[in-house]
Amino acid sequence: MTAHTPPSQPRVPNWMLVVLMAMYTGFAIPVSIVALVQSLFFGVVIVVVLAYFWTQIPAMLLGRNAPMAEAVGEVVPQMPALAPTGNASFDAYRAELIDRLERERTDFDTFVTRLRASKDKSEFDRFMDARANRGAA
């Protein structure tokens, strides 16, 4: 998940990214509370603006147009590979469960893709009927 950083913009160290995000949080929360107490309308506007900039901080600091999850993924260590626990039955159960969840996720993604592709109500109804018949069989 290594992203290419343009050479023209220096990369901010991970520890600095974490510190700057913590400082922003320490600023944004009190400002939001005070703004909401003073005026509900302006408080909501300020909360929305601060929330928007919260999602943009990592991209700005890393010098690219990165979504929040990708930028935070570079700071937070990735989960280690699932190593065997020594309990064969648990390892088999875990492997089967992970495989089943991945199949269900694939099926769900396919379902959502087909659902979004439905152009009109009759096509949608045919699709749902076919899905219900397939599930009942």
Rank of each mutant, 00 (worst) to 15 (best):
M60L: 07
E123F: 02
L97T: 15
F111G: 01
A51Q: 00
T106E: 13
L61W: 01
F27M: 13
V47M: 08
A81G: 10
A59H: 00
S39P: 02
T113F: 05
L97D: 14
L82D: 12
E70M: 09
S8N: 14
N87K: 03
R126Q: 15
R64G: 15
P13C: 02
G86C: 00
A117Q: 04
V48N: 01
L17C: 10
L17D: 10
L97S: 15
T85C: 07
F41K: 13
G135S: 11
R116H: 13
D99E: 14
M79W: 14
V31N: 08
V45K: 02
F90G: 02
S8H: 13
M16E: 15
F124D: 11
V47C: 07
F41P: 09
S89Y: 06
A81Q: 09
R103E: 08
F53A: 05
V75R: 01
T2L: 07
V44Y: 01
K119Y: 14
A95E: 02
I29P: 06
F42D: 12
R100D: 14
E74G: 15
S118K: 13
S32A: 12
E70T: 14
V37M: 07
N14Y: 14
T85D: 05
Y24P: 05
N133R: 15
M1Q: 06
D129K: 11
A137R: 12
L97P: 09
Q78T: 15
D109F: 00
P84L: 03
T106Q: 13
G86I: 00
T106Y: 04
F108P: 01
A59I: 00
L115V: 01
A71L: 03
A130D: 09
V19H: 08
R105H: 10
T110F: 09
R131F: 12
E74T: 09
Y24L: 05
S89V: 06
A137H: 11
Y24D: 11
E70Q: 13
G86S: 00
T2G: 11
S89E: 13
L50W: 00
S32E: 03
Q38T: 07
A136D: 09
L20G: 00
L40P: 02
L62A: 06
Y24M: 08
F53N: 09
F27P: 04
A71T: 02
V47I: 07
V75D: 00
L20D: 02
V18P: 02
N133L: 15
N133P: 10
G43V: 04
T2E: 11
Q9P: 02
R134L: 15
A69Y: 07
G86E: 01
V76A: 08
I46F: 07
D107Q: 15
A66V: 12
V31C: 05
M128V: 12
V112L: 06
R64I: 02
V75G: 03
A69I: 02
A66Q: 13
P80I: 05
F90V: 03
E123H: 10
G73N: 11
V49C: 04
R116W: 09
